[in-house]
Simulated scan of single mutants.
Amino acid sequence: MLQQIYPVAPHPYRYELNKDLQFAAAHFVPAVSAGKCSRMHGHTYFANVTVAGDTLDEAGFLVNFSDIKTLIHARFDHTVLNDDTDSFGADDPNRFPTTEVVAKTICELVQRYLDEKSNHAVCLQVFLRETPTSYCVYRPWPKVSRRPAGDAHA
């Protein structure tokens, strides 16, 4: 098993969960300045998703590891990222399927899932490795405290 050290996102939460996973996907960056990356090609992406919170759910989880993997695999594994027009687009560089935008998209996807849960967990960061020598870390802007009222650690 590969052991990896990730950048740490400082936070005030009691629990931090990290899920490693990989998925295979093809893409191209629709910009001439992207050079060779403007041509269709594929990667085996390696992702680490960091979730944090103070409250466990009814099963004793911050979030089920399997749910995070399923969420990302169902959306991205063995796909052409450019075909996912809900997530990516060819008219705005902020929506091109670059490593940066894919990491941001994963973070937003995980956060939308977490927002449906009652224990107020947050996605703190997504580490996304595109090649053995290239990766991106995405951290969303911190939100105002989402802790339950009356939490002694607030």
Results as ranks from 00 to 15, higher is better:
69 K>N: 01
138 Y>A: 08
19 K>V: 14
109 L>D: 14
134 S>I: 08
86 D>T: 13
27 H>P: 02
57 D>N: 03
129 R>E: 15
112 R>C: 01
4 Q>G: 04
144 V>S: 12
93 P>N: 04
1 M>R: 12
112 R>F: 05
58 E>Q: 14
95 R>C: 12
142 P>R: 03
62 L>V: 01
53 G>P: 05
134 S>K: 09
143 K>R: 09
61 F>N: 12
116 E>P: 09
89 G>V: 06
63 V>W: 07
147 R>T: 05
105 T>H: 11
137 V>C: 10
65 F>L: 00
74 A>F: 05
67 D>T: 10
50 T>E: 10
46 F>K: 05
48 N>W: 06
28 F>K: 01
125 Q>C: 09
23 F>P: 03
97 P>E: 12
73 H>L: 06
151 D>G: 01
59 A>Q: 15
70 T>I: 14
100 E>M: 00
84 D>E: 11
120 H>C: 13
19 K>H: 14
48 N>F: 09
126 V>H: 07
110 V>P: 09
60 G>R: 10
52 A>V: 15
49 V>M: 10
63 V>Y: 13
21 L>G: 05
127 F>K: 05
37 C>V: 11
2 L>Y: 02
68 I>C: 03
35 G>F: 02
25 A>R: 02
21 L>T: 08
112 R>G: 07
16 E>Y: 01
52 A>C: 04
71 L>Y: 06
110 V>E: 12
83 D>H: 03
53 G>N: 03
69 K>W: 05
84 D>F: 00
41 H>Y: 03
49 V>G: 01
141 W>V: 13
16 E>P: 03
103 A>N: 15
64 N>E: 11
153 H>E: 11
34 A>W: 13
123 C>Q: 06
43 H>F: 05
143 K>N: 00
125 Q>M: 13
69 K>M: 07
143 K>G: 14
96 F>Q: 12
80 V>A: 04
100 E>A: 11
116 E>Q: 02
115 D>E: 15
31 A>G: 00
86 D>W: 02
49 V>Y: 06
31 A>Y: 04
111 Q>A: 09
124 L>P: 05
32 V>E: 15
154 A>M: 11
80 V>D: 14
106 I>D: 11
80 V>T: 04
91 D>I: 00
45 Y>R: 01
89 G>Y: 04
97 P>V: 00
49 V>R: 07
154 A>V: 09
128 L>E: 08
47 A>H: 00
43 H>G: 07
120 H>A: 15
115 D>Y: 07
93 P>D: 10
131 T>H: 02
103 A>M: 13
